[in-house]
Design a protein around this nucleic acid. Structure first.
Lengths: 336, 336
DNA sequence: CTGAAAGCGCTTACAG
DNA sequence: CTGAAAGCGCTTACAG
């Protein structure tokens, strides 16, 4: 049989209530009583049953992460891994448990969110991505359940979020390329319903316009999936339309596909910039220039915001903007 | 206020016990009653409180993973990621939750294990590595708490485990190198207290002996950490002692360090084989030959064994051996 | 086939 | 400062 608060109470000659208060370190309990109870706990090797505490407390100290990945892609995207790393580091430091589930489509994600909060398993939910018309966000808001989004949601009211300044990040990349004399710049982005894609596309367009270059919609392509295969296909399509002098993408994985095309057309001198500065970027030929978005930091601050909300920390903000920086490699140093 | 079993019972005009039985799909409840109760649940949008169920049931349907990583290394080792992927795929399919915690040293890991099981949070524990004299394993065995180990534990009695045949895997690698005419083969392994290291070292020694090559202890090095830096250092030390014709390592990360040394000594023709066939292996110069250990499958079967035990599946085995295969690349094709 | 009651192991408002 | 009692939301042995 398991030892419970009752056995401890009996041994310490106090009531179960008192033992409970000692566990919670209630200041009203006298130091003397505390000592006696601690001794009894020690002697019996007592450990509080966290499930029972959670039921009474209505709190699990557990954070639930929704990983937007299919079975096959699970942990395939370094961005999510890095974000999870940041989340884990903060959460574990603060003695929170982490639970995760992956899902490849919005319906399933929504079900997971519903399950998480209705079953009362998690105190807070971490969304790793923000979509247009995001039903998970809508549901969580409506249920008034604590959550945080990595990526800026459409409506930031009453919402915790962390993000890069994606507009600014892409704006400076394109600026940088134009300054280097590139003017016919293609854009290959992720799915259009992600806010991050839209922000970066806006930055791209703005940079062109600022330099008096007209936006050519034919040079703006979108892939269904962050993958080399999709990037390859998109680049081939772009080249059928027009040959760019540089290509910016919203993800390194897409850029890998672009580089693959360029390997097949060695005489073309096209510069390429990716996003996320993934581990493989420096191993490409040529090594890929990429925007480091500090995914780990995004995750870290996401966990921080959420936990501060759960613990009702005074004066906590509702969002963080994490800096980005372009890591220059040979893919933007083609014309030596 | 939250809707509970009571409200459903009232609306359906039955007792709470009956509602509970309907949730559990108890066969004794009449189809008619079930229908009425389901309707009431629907109408009230009732969701069972999983915490309360867990308290009454003494089961959480949650698996706890111990990730042997420091804060900095978290998710840095592709082997663990792949294993987690396999675990997640199986567990989620079977409607189990997954929780993980990382820890860089055995003491802390043990504390996590204790916390997991004493707090009653997890039904089963997954250990991602097996050490000599493993205190986590000892504790779990002693507590008679369900768990599974990735990697063969010292004593396999009453223990669930999955592993490769590490002896055989390294034996064939060394055999292969000897057949290719290499005879002065160095070995750089991970920490010696990991069983996996010992098994692979045994395979290495056996292959040499079978071919009548005497084992030179000076050619057997061990690193503290699976990292490029440690691999580099070990290789430098080996070369001070004797120049090998081939080097086998127990992890790609170590091999990366070896390759780095070889880049600095371009005239040396030394073949290298790694383990784990990590994503970066094919991007090395030269591309690294590596043993694919099917980490994802290891994770998948680990989850399967554990869940089958939790659900008392008849005729379930207590371990799986997952096949390995050498992926040949240029690092073992030096002498064209 | 269904209900009343006790129990899972805690917490906490209330009373003293 | 401490205790008795009710409650968190379920499950299940027992009785009918």
């Amino acid at each position: 049989m398991n030892i419970t608060i009752k056995e401890v109470a009996k041994l310490a000659n106090v009531s179960p209530s008192t033992v409970s208060r000692v566990i919670a370190d209630n200041p009203k309990i006298s130091a003397e009583t505390k000592k006696i109870v601690y001794q009894a706990m020690e002697e019996l090797k007592y450990r509080p049953n966290a499930i029972a505490r959670s039921l009474a407390n209505k709190s699990t100290r557990t954070l639930g992460i929704i990983l937007p990945s299919t079975d096959e892609n699970l942990f395939g995207n370094p961005f999510f891994i890095q974000a999870m790393k940041g989340i884990s580091m903060y959460a574990q430091k603060k003695d929170y448990y982490i639970m995760y589930t992956h899902s490849g489509n919005e319906n399933e994600s929504l079900n997971i969110v519903m399950d998480y909060i209705n079953s009362k398993w998690v105190d807070g939910v971490i969304l790793l991505t923000a979509m247009e018309n995001d039903r998970c966000i809508a549901y969580l808001k409506d249920a008034d359940h604590p959550f945080v989004v990595i990526g800026r949601p459409e409506n930031t009211q009453n919402t915790l979020w962390v993000d890069n300044d994606n507009f600014q990040a892409m704006y400076s990349v394109v600026n940088y390329l134009i300054d280097k004399g590139r003017s016919n710049i293609g854009f290959i982005g992720g799915p259009q319903h992600f806010n991050v894609t839209k922000d970066r596309l806006d930055g791209y367009k703005r940079a062109l316009r600022v330099h008096g270059i007209s936006v050519d919609e034919g040079m703006i392509l979108s892939v269904a999936d962050y993958s080399e295969a999709c990037g390859y296909e998109a680049m081939m399509n772009m080249m059928k339309y027009k040959i760019p002098t540089a290509v910016v993408t919203t993800d390194d994985l897409i850029s890998y596909g672009v580089l693959k095309v360029l390997k097949e057309y060695k005489d073309l001198k096209i510069e390429v910039v990716g996003f996320n500065n993934t581990p493989l970027a420096s191993y490409q030929t040529p090594p890929l220039s990429s925007v480091d978005i500090n995914a780990e930091k995004l995750g870290y601050y996401a966990a921080k915001l959420l936990i501060e909300k759960l613990e009702k920390v005074e004066g906590s903000v509702n969002h963080y903007i994490v800096e980005t920086n372009l890591i220059e490699r040979e893919s933007t140093d083609i014309l030596k």
